[in-house]
Design a binder for these strands. Sequence first.
DNA 1: ATGGAAATGAAAATCATTTTCATTTGTGCT
DNA 2: AGCACAAATGAAAATGATTTTCATTTCCAT
Lengths: 121, 121
Amino acid sequence: MSRSNPRVLNTLERAGGFASAQEVYHLMQRAGESIGLTTVYRSLQSLADDKIVDVLRRDDGESIYRLCGDAHHHHLVCKGCGDAIEIPGGAIEKWAKTMAEEHGFRDVGHSAEIYGLCRKC
Amino acid sequence: MSRSNPRVLNTLERAGGFASAQEVYHLMQRAGESIGLTTVYRSLQSLADDKIVDVLRRDDGESIYRLCGDAHHHHLVCKGCGDAIEIPGGAIEKWAKTMAEEHGFRDVGHSAEIYGLCRKC
DNA sequence: ATGGAAATGAAAATCATTTTCATTTGTGCT
DNA sequence: AGCACAAATGAAAATGATTTTCATTTCCAT
Ligand SMILES: [Zn+2]
Ligand SMILES: [Zn+2]
Ligand SMILES: [Zn+2]
Ligand SMILES: [Zn+2]
């Protein structure tokens, strides 16, 4: 079922942090690798479906992807340089569960991100 | 400074919950009101700037707006019917502040949402 | 080698949102 | 009323990421 091109995953690894489909595509171009934008999109989507990469959406609407560990975590994102730090959810894990139960929700997940300016910015 | 067309706000009121710019536009069309899509966009944006409406982004990337009280809050969203309930942030507020300070971030904000299936779905 | 399935990618299509810009509307002044 | 000037409007074009189409290429099992 793996529709993902391994070179895409490899490039995302090299990218080190978050990268959009367009960025991955250009990285591969600059590296002299021949690939189509379509395949990059398909691969990233597949990786996301398989929970191998993390998907976030930037304010400008562009989706960004990043390899992520299997542990549940959240992000502290810099509005300036775009750097993202993985952080533990701590107290909000219980908060989410409590809130959901309180309103009779099941099959519950949550998202939480913190935005700010890092020291460098 | 109000660049917002009052009829747009009025329509969002009638909509009752979240609505996208496109949806507001079509609601107004169906109601026989003459307005341009551009004005709808401009008005919603202005309302968002003025913190009069709440902006969320759907998974498909479309921005949705809703009238909201002035109090800071979060959302419990049903993946089935799209219903959203306003909930207090509780533990999150301190979590965000602590995490940000710990990493030297300033000018900090946060977003947090809980997704699940409501009783009806 | 042969046939069919899966993968690929160039080009076109989609679609929300933004930008442009010419026109209309509103407001104050004479 | 007549005029000037700013703000608001909206049609049409531009933007830009993502998706779809579809013809071609690559894989793989027989
Ligand atoms: Zn930074
Ligand atoms: Zn969490
Ligand atoms: Zn529901
Ligand atoms: Zn909060």
